[in-house]
Each structure stands twice: as C-alpha cells, then as structure tokens.
Nucleic acid binder design. Sequence first.
DNA 1: ATTACTGCAAACTATTTGCAGCCTC
DNA 2: GAGGCTGCAAATAGTTTGCAGTAAT
Lengths: 158, 158
Amino acid sequence: MQKQKLRDRIYSALREGDHRLTPQREAVVEVLLDNADAHLSAENIFMQTKHNYPDIGLATVYRTLELLENLGLVHRFDYGDGQSRYEVSLTAEGHYHHHLICVNCGEIGEFKDDLLDEIEEKIAADTGFVVTDHCLRLFGLCQKCQGEQDKPAEPIDK
Amino acid sequence: MQKQKLRDRIYSALREGDHRLTPQREAVVEVLLDNADAHLSAENIFMQTKHNYPDIGLATVYRTLELLENLGLVHRFDYGDGQSRYEVSLTAEGHYHHHLICVNCGEIGEFKDDLLDEIEEKIAADTGFVVTDHCLRLFGLCQKCQGEQDKPAEPIDK
DNA sequence: ATTACTGCAAACTATTTGCAGCCTC
DNA sequence: GAGGCTGCAAATAGTTTGCAGTAAT
C-alpha cells in the first residue's frame, strides 16, 4: 500500500531524533508495517520479529515500541484484557478510527469516523477541557456472532 | 444523594444471586457508594475500606469487585496506566458519561452525553456490528493545567 | 571513539489463585 | 452444619529496568 511512505516517515523521525537505526528496530518496523491493520500485542510483535531476527529480545521490542510511541509513530491501545496492542499511526495528525470489539469471538474491527469532533468541541465549550486525543471502544457482536451467541467466549472485557 | 437506593439495589442483587452479605462486602460497598463519582483503583478501595474494616485483604477487595462487576452493579474502567478503576453503575441500564483524562495532572473528569447513539446507528447500518456497550476516553489538558504544563505529574492517588 | 542500544535476567506491578479456617445462611 | 467467603502467601502475566557487552554513527 503506502508502506514505503510510512517506512520513510519512521526512518526520518528516528534520524531527526538522534536515534539509531539498528537491525532490531528495522525488523520491528517491518512487522508493524506488514500488520498495519492488525492489532498486535507486544508478544505477537516479538514472535513475528523473531522470524527475521531470531536473536531479538522481548525487552528490545518493548523499548522500540515505547520509542516509536513517544515519537507519535505508533499508537498503543488497551482493550482491558491486560495487554497493550500496537499499530502504526497512519497519519501524522490524529487518527479517526474506532475499534469494534466482539464480546463473543474477540475479533477487533475498525470503523472510520470523525463524529467525535462534535463531542470534543462541545466538551471544550462546556468544561474548558481541551481534548488532544481520544480512544473509543465499542463492544458488541460482530455480524458472524449474531446468530450463534453463547459460544465459549474468550475473556475479553472492558 | 440516592445512596440508599443504590445500596438497596446492590444488597438485593446479592441476595437474589445467592451471595452472602459479609461485613467485608458491606465495607467495600460503602466505600464505592461514598465515592460514586471518583474513579478509584482497587488499591484505593482497599485502603479506604481498611478504615472501617482493618483486617480486610486485598484479594477480598478484588473478589468483591469482580462479583459486583459480574452482577452489573459496578463498572470497571481502564485508563491505560496499568490499573483498573471502578465505580458503581448509577443506572441499571447503560451509562452515558465519558471520561476526560488530563495527561498532565492525571485528574479524571466526566462528561455526560449521548451523541454516541448516532455513531452506533451508523456502525450498525454500515458494518452489521451491533453495539451493546462502549467506552470513550478523551485525553487532553484540564482547565487548571492549560497554563502550567510540563509539571511533574503526580501518580494519581486520591 | 563515543555512547546509544541490546540481550539477559531479575525486578516490578496489578491481579489471580490455592488452601485451611471462618462465619453466613 | 454445609459451603460460600476470607486472609495470607504464593503464583501469574505483562511490562520495565540494571548491567555489562556490542555496534551504529
């Protein structure tokens, strides 16, 4: 897709921030780019990165993700199931997609929308709180699961 | 406020579910009722409960919160700072308040609104995903912090 | 040549669980 | 009196950190 553009953005942000481009970081970035619309946990990313760089340590993955998050290149999400998920930020500005979490099968979908702008303006006007970021998670049943409920649901809660 | 009504609802739900009303559970419920609009962590609740029931164990607090959550009497939130927050559900049905989290001082405010209904309808129409619950967290700067940023943020402890 | 980065293992934090005894129903 | 509930301590799970060695600039 626009993978090359994203990779360029990440590499130049690293250079500009005086961070080194190590093979470990390259490997992690590739995994992130290859899974731009998955919602990988640190452990997932670690396992996948091992394919291209078997000697990488889990701590390095965490440190890389933290760095990229601080540079605004990666977004960290929390689904309340005790582990963080990561994905590359697709734009330099805000991201306007929300997550649809199926409480039956655990699948995570996405929904693009900017209706929240309205809410954020209302908040600024009413309370003086200035919103810079948001996280909207919607729980419910995905299309697949609407017929066959009550299956052995995985432990996903908010 | 309507504390007595909430307490009654909790007590009868416990009875109906064949759960025992122990002094520990009573003590935890009182703390929850006294802090209906705070956003307490399990540790916070544990400490506060100790005032009225010094011998209570942290595990009991967790078990009580889990029970109340399963009964729909308490809502659990996750702000991504690694610990869950709890608050009594004020109504039997859905709750329509969102959380304003100040990234500077950590204060958590609330904002009541039902604009999300619109988004949820749109999602059902577009994707077939049926939303049953949601969690919206808004990050930014509270009014107090807008002048004096970059302060040494406190580790949120009420 | 610096000194940021890495892997490993140990440390930490929030939460869960096993178990023997206790106390509500 | 039976079985759910409790406190304690130990176990987990995800993440972070200290350190000595390694490698990007």
